[in-house]
């Protein structure tokens, strides 16, 4: 199982998009789509290329925090860029992703006081 990590985002190659996702969601075909927006910096992880993106409305943070499924038609790139200027943030190198199905998993951490799991805010 191929996995690629860019900061607080893990991209994992999988065999297929689950039927419940395909049947319930309409994919976005935006060629330059913001997947995850960082909160303390004006940066985000963008997927660029011929990609169908399924946005999971309520990720199961307690289990596997899957935020998106990607169906990459032709080699695409995951870029970490400044949201305003659309320039590389100079923080995380670009990842090249070959055609295939991938899922996007967002990093999380444990809050020992609330006994809860929180999304990492990069």
């Amino acid at each position: 199982m191929n996995q690629f990590r860019q900061g607080d985002v893990l991209i994992e190659r999988v065999n297929e998009i689950p039927n419940e996702v395909k049947n319930a969601l309409q994919p976005s075909k935006e060629p330059n789509k913001l997947l995850i927006r960082g909160e303390s910096r004006n940066h985000g992880h963008y997927i660029k290329g011929e990609v169908e993106t399924y946005v999971i409305p309520n990720p199961e943070i307690e289990k596997l925090n899957i935020t998106h499924y990607l169906e990459i038609k032709e080699e695409a790139s995951l870029e970490h860029i400044n949201i305003d200027s659309k320039l590389w943030s100079k923080e995380h190198e670009t990842l090249r992703l070959k055609p295939g199905i991938y899922r996007v998993i967002r990093q999380r951490e444990y809050n020992p006081y609330l006994k809860a799991i929180n999304i990492i805010k990069d």
Partner: peptide
């Protein structure tokens, strides 16, 4: 691995940036 919902066997990124 836990921070990505995985354990050490299933967390094997081949590239990290």
């Amino acid at each position: 691995a836990w921070t990505f919902g995985k354990d050490k066997e299933s967390y094997r990124p081949i590239i990290e940036t």
